[in-house]
C-alpha cells in the first residue's frame, strides 16, 4: 500500500511535468499549427541562464543566487523574451509554410540554440544546484515518504493550470485566443488580431518553459546543452496522444504519458524494463492510427478537403 502511494505520487508528479511541457507545445500548435521542437531548448536556455556565462569547468551561480522570487521572475522573463524573439525573428516569416516545414524550422532553431550554448558555455555537463532543500524527503504518513519536489511540481502545475484556465475563460485576450485556436481564419475575420494572439501564445509557452527549467534543474542539479531534447520528446508524444491543438488534450496526454511510463517501469519484468521508451513510442504510432485526432477531440483537428 505504501509502495502504491509512493508510485502514484511519482506518477502524478512526472505526469504534471509532462503536462506543463505538452501545454507549452499545444498552445503554439493550436494557433499556429507549429510543433515547436525548440521548446526543450527554451528550457535549456532558462537553466543555463542561472549561471555566469563562461566556458569554465565549474559553474558559478549568478541569477541562481538571487532571492527565490526575483530568481523566478528573471528566468521566466529571459525565456519569455527568447520565445517572443523566436516568433518575431523566425516563425513570423514561416506562417504560410506547411506544418511539417515549420517542424523542420523549429528543429533548426533548436539545433542552433544548443550549439550557441556550446559556444558560450562549453560542451561539458556542469553541476548547478538550486534550492537543494526541495530534493529532500518528507514523511506524509508512517512508512510513506516522498520527495518534497514531487509535491511542489504537482502543486505548481495545478496553480498554473487554474491560472491558465481563468485567463482563457475570463479575460478578453484569453477568449480571443480560444477563438483563434478553434478557427484561426474565422477569428481573424471577426476582428481578432492574429499577430497579437500568436505573440501571446509564445509568451505563455515561454513562461511555462521558464518555470519548467527551474523545476528540472532543481531535480537534476546538472546542466547539459542537450538536456532539453529527451524531455522535449516526451512532451511531444504527450501532445500527439492527447490530441494536437487541444489544450485539455495536452494536459490529459501529459498525465497519460507520465502515468503509463511510471506504471510500465513498475510492472515490466527486469529484462524488458529497458524497452520502456520503445513501448511508449510504439504507443504513439498506435494512437495515430486508431485515433488520429488524439484522446481529446477538437473541431479544428479535423482535416478539411
Amino acid at each position: 500500500m505504501d509502495y502504491a502511494i509512493q508510485t502514484i505520487i511519482s506518477a502524478l508528479s512526472l505526469g504534471s511535468f509532462y503536462a506543463l511541457g505538452a501545454l507549452g507545445i499545444g498552445l503554439l500548435f493550436s494557433v499556429l499549427r507549429l510543433i515547436n521542437f525548440a521548446h526543450g531548448d527554451f528550457i535549456t536556455v532558462g537553466a543555463y541562464a542561472l549561471i555566469v556565462p563562461s566556458s569554465a569547468v565549474t559553474a558559478t551561480l549568478l541569477i541562481g543566487d538571487f532571492h527565490p522570487a526575483l530568481l523566478v521572475l528573471c528566468i521566466v522573463g529571459i525565456v519569455v523574451m527568447l520565445a517572443i524573439l523566436s516568433y518575431f525573428v523566425v516563425f513570423q516569416h514561416a506562417q504560410k509554410s506547411s506544418p511539417a516545414t515549420m517542424m523542420i524550422i523549429s528543429f533548426a532553431l533548436g539545433y542552433t540554440l544548443q550549439n550557441i550554448i556550446v559556444m558560450i558555455y562549453g560542451g561539458r555537463p556542469k553541476a548547478a544546484g538550486i534550492w537543494s532543500d526541495l530534493t529532500g524527503q518528507v514523511q506524509i504518513s508512517s512508512g510513506v515518504s516522498v520527495q518534497l519536489l514531487q509535491l511542489v511540481t504537482i502543486a505548481v502545475t495545478w496553480i498554473l493550470l487554474i491560472a491558465l484556465v481563468l485567463f482563457l475563460k475570463r479575460t478578453r485576450v484569453g477568449i480571443q485566443m480560444r477563438a483563434a485556436a478553434e478557427d484561426f481564419r474565422m477569428a481573424r475575420m471577426l476582428g481578432v488580431n492574429g499577430k497579437n494572439v500568436i505573440a501571446l501564445a509564445f509568451i505563455l509557452s515561454g513562461g511555462l518553459a521558464g518555470i519548467m527549467s527551474l523545476l528540472f534543474v532543481t531535480q537534476t542539479g546538472v546542466l547539459k546543452f542537450s538536456m532539453g531534447v529527451p524531455i522535449m520528446l516526451f512532451f511531444f508524444i504527450a501532445t500527439v496522444i492527447g490530441g494536437m491543438g487541444s489544450l485539455v488534450g495536452s494536459v490529459v496526454g501529459g498525465y497519460s504519458v507520465g502515468i503509463v511510463s511510471v506504471i510500465l517501469s513498475a510492472i515490466l519484468p527486469e529484462e524488458l524494463r529497458g524497452f520502456r521508451d520503445t513501448c511508449v513510442f510504439i504507443l504513439v504510432i498506435i494512437v495515430l492510427l486508431a485515433r488520429p485526432q488524439g484522446l481529446v477531440l477538437t473541431k479544428a483537428a479535423k482535416e478539411r478537403v
Binding site: 516569416h93 514561416a94 524550422i105 539545433y111 542552433t112 550549439n115 550557441i116 556550446v118 559556444m119 562549453g122
Partner: peptide, 17 residues
C-alpha cells in the same frame, strides 16, 4: 567551437524562411 554547427543551423533557417 561549434561554429560549424551554428553555421549549418543558421543557413538552414535562412533557406527555410
Amino acid at each position: 567551437t561549434s561554429s560549424a554547427e551554428v553555421g549549418v543551423g543558421l543557413i538552414m533557417l535562412l533557406i527555410l524562411l
